[in-house]
């Protein structure tokens, strides 16, 4: 239920232009060749960036690795031995974006849970001393871009992220849990962006 509530909240608040839109965008490629990162590469990247062991970063039912077991085929993997899928699917399946979002949300939730459990070693979530202010929001945006997209946000991206966080804050209280939820959703917004999923 908590996950559903989080998804409903982000759907209500997310601006269409929120994630990773460059301020000085290059012209659209006339012949784009981007590739899906696939589940394994995606989780390896996040495991490294968010400092979570690869084998712990995403487990469905606390048992089945998201990329290797639970969503192996829909996230671009193969299984030549049992189900005879020799190469990644040429077209993403209908379930692929659902699985991808689910993985992104689980990873972000897991990182923030670790941060709350051990604030001294936190990576993403750092509780504001008082009411979250612009500095807190900018610092969070910087951390998220640095960890997830491995770069700094430009001014426009930072501004949109701040607006997103302010929108979330207006609909929640000032508790640590509310701040953590904001962090999860902001993390999810970037971790499920095209820039994080494709290359």
């Amino acid at each position: 239920m908590r996950i559903l509530a989080l998804i409903a909240l982000i759907a209500a608040l997310a601006s269409p232009a929120l994630p990773a839109r460059a301020q000085e965008a290059a012209p659209a490629s006339p012949d784009p060749r981007i590739k899906f990162k696939d589940g394994e590469r995606y989780l390896r990247d996040l495991a490294e960036s968010l400092e979570i062991p690869r084998e712990e970063i995403c487990l469905e039912l606390s048992r089945y690795d998201c990329a290797d077991k639970a969503f192996r085929i829909v996230l671009g993997g193969v299984d030549p031995y049992d189900i005879r899928i020799m190469q990644p699917l040429d077209q993403a399946s209908l379930a692929s974006p659902i699985a991808f979002d689910r993985v992104a949300l689980q990873v972000c939730s897991g990182r923030v849970a670790r941060d709350r459990a051990d604030p001294a070693a936190s990576i993403l979530f750092k509780r504001a001393a008082g009411r979250p202010d612009a500095a807190w929001r900018d610092a969070l945006a910087d951390r998220l871009y640095d960890r997830i997209l491995r770069r700094s946000p430009d001014a426009g991206e930072r501004q949109r992220m701040a607006g997103f966080l302010e929108g979330l804050e207006a609909r929640s209280d000032r508790s640590a849990k509310a701040q953590a939820d904001q962090t999860i959703l902001a993390c999810f917004a970037l971790a499920s962006s095209a820039e994080a999923a494709f290359y």
């Binding site: 000085e24 290059a26 659209a28 490629s29 006339p30 012949d31």
Partner: peptide
């Protein structure tokens, strides 16, 4: 189809985050 950029597009692309041209 042509995958070539116009000169104007090429100038913009060269200064962008990715050179799409």
């Amino acid at each position: 189809t042509s995958a070539r950029c116009t000169p104007g597009q090429a100038r913009n692309a060269a200064g962008g985050r990715w050179n799409t041209c």
